[in-house]
Amino acid sequence: MELLVNIVLLILLVATAGALVVVRGLLASTMLTSVYGLLCASFFVTMDAVDVAFTEAAVGAGVSPLLLLLTVAAIGRGEPRPVGALPVLAIVLVPVTAALLIIGTLDMPPFGSPDAPAHTHVAPRYLQLSGEEIGIPNVVTSVLASYRAFDTLGEVLVIFTAGVAVLLILATPGQRGSARPRYVPDNHRDPHTILQIVSRILIPFILLFALYVQFHGEYGPGGGFQAGVIFASAIILYGLLYGLPTVCRVVRPAVVEWLSAVGVLIFGITGVFAMLSGRPFLDYSVFADDPVTAQHIGILVVELGVGITVASVITVIYYAFANQFETAES
């Protein structure tokens, strides 16, 4: 039964990707990208990758179609061009890469076999010892925040770089690099009363759910990234309905940019803490004498740093994109 769901989802994924090759309009492609993200997230659930499904749903089906939409809106629909001659480069390159990939899959261990090398060398230690060494049930969070914490620091830096890069590219002249919006009068004819009322009821629960996900990361699926994305999507929902100037008054752009830098520093400083007392970088055993509670404190603080950075960077990117769009309108 599990295999059936897995195969059907894969077929749907390939069908959506095929449709994306064929479909011409940008709005239609955005919709299909959103469907593709949802399918991908469901596939990850059937593959027992719970945290990854969480993130892919929040990012792949939530944030990236939204950014695509803002771009499509800012550039206007962009008239679909007639398909040019099929480029010869594609006809040559794609089969060559496909052949190389197929060669690659020939000697791979069969799918799902428990004695594949990947499951017998490094991973068993995480599964067996993380219970005593770190003491939290969600092994993915313990590997993410403790065993390979430097990877996560690198990743937080990637999302911070994306924020800096978007601001550097989209910073409209005259602003100190932040999307301080010029006042756009709320001249939308219909104020969407129903949407605003319902959203006003839902947004507090979404923010509460984001905090739950942030601090529930040790026991079930969740953690800094997912919480950050959900927090940012609540702000984006508020921004969509009440317009950019209102949301900029609630969550000021300068503060959000400052927070994205502070989040990375929180993560970095917790690492440097260990160096001051001679332990290697990002070694949490300095926070408390009992090693397990030290790990808990370390992971909690680190996940908080991740959550702050991800939430503020996605909000910064939304402001930069929405600001482009609103100026085009005024």
Binding site: D190, H192, I194, L195, V198, I201, L202, F205
Partner: peptide, 20 residues
């Protein structure tokens, strides 16, 4: 609860946007 809140609103918003 969440689905019962959000689905009808989404359908309403969809109908309004299509009409406009």
């Amino acid at each position: 609860l969440f689905v019962l809140f959000s689905s009808p609103t989404a359908s309403h918003a969809l109908a309004k946007a299509a009409w406009n």
